[in-house]
Design a protein around this nucleic acid. Sequence first.
DNA 1: TTGACAAGTGACCTTTCGTTCGCTATAATA
DNA 2: TATTATAGCGAACGAAAGGTCACTTGTCAA
Lengths: 197, 197
Amino acid sequence: MAKDTKERILAAALEMFSQKGYEGTNIRELSASLGLVKSGIYKHYESKEAIWNALLDRMIAYYGERFGSPERLPPVPDSPEEFVVMTMRMAGFTIRDEQIVKTRKVLTLEQFRDERARELATKHFLTGLTEMFTPIFAGMMDKGLLRRDDPAMLAFAYTTPISALIRLCDREPEKTEEAVSRIEAFSRHFVMIHGAK
Amino acid sequence: MAKDTKERILAAALEMFSQKGYEGTNIRELSASLGLVKSGIYKHYESKEAIWNALLDRMIAYYGERFGSPERLPPVPDSPEEFVVMTMRMAGFTIRDEQIVKTRKVLTLEQFRDERARELATKHFLTGLTEMFTPIFAGMMDKGLLRRDDPAMLAFAYTTPISALIRLCDREPEKTEEAVSRIEAFSRHFVMIHGAK
DNA sequence: TTGACAAGTGACCTTTCGTTCGCTATAATA
DNA sequence: TATTATAGCGAACGAAAGGTCACTTGTCAA
């Protein structure tokens, strides 16, 4: 019947892994959440670990498509205000998109156990955002919106505080509103400080 | 014999929980690492969960003693260079102290499962450092070392990038050297940007 | 219509989990 | 010295884990 069961298994696995971690997830519950009995899962994946690996493949591929390619970069803003708006749009998306939230949680939980999860975690939490904003800041310096400085250093100084607040939302979703407004305040403060005289 | 077995159990639990998480840790291995058979543990703690709770009590108490009290604050530095040195001393300590590294890892792994771990994680990763540096920055502004600004905002902007690099060390210890030098570079850049004209 | 195959079921297997219990050795107490 | 609590041992327990297998069912091509 359902040809998309393989897909649904991955989605359910992402959900459960993100809440209870790999070890804390059991196949019975996972299959029950899909309306099947546990042995049914083994028609689609040969083991729990195979599900994990397939899920990681997905996450890695998705990250590559979505954030990996340089041509996907947002355009260099034309004003400080536009820069803040762009930031808020990106942050709002990454905070609210369920898929991405769950992915970050899984990476958080499995980063010490799985080598590939560790690498992807570093991209999600550190290098990815920095690499994304470095050319933006370089472009803003060219346009005279920011004082001349090391764009990579600025990107690091800009994205890591925002990342910290995003992770706060993952951990304590009830603080999302507060976190979003803090991101905006930080963003405005940042362009003010680094803005061209 | 060993009256300190109860202590050693907590130490071994911190070690294992920090590597494999609560679910991934089993009592057999835990007791074996202490040179006893698994049932021996139950002479000291009534269950695995009791060990977890005792460990969390410890971590919370330790954090309160170490970082919670205002009188424990480092003195306000007298020069930018002194500020950088102070930062490096604190960062080096928190990166290399095994106890604290393991504590951060445990909190990372259990923050979505345990309410108390969640709260302590937010202190460790976000609010604690910010609250620590806010009065320092206020003092530096009073001394004319930093331009007048919102000290809490500066503390947030200063500590979260450092925290991101500390967490990188937790995840990928082989990058410790690189991270430490990036912390120093960031610190110097920060005092340069925010320094009084 | 029939044959083949993919998808799902339910019983069952082995292993491992956390936990319990009865026993022993030791060391402090009365 | 006799007693008693403590710390550890080793076998055993039930529950739950991941996984296997023979079987049924529904779909579709030949």
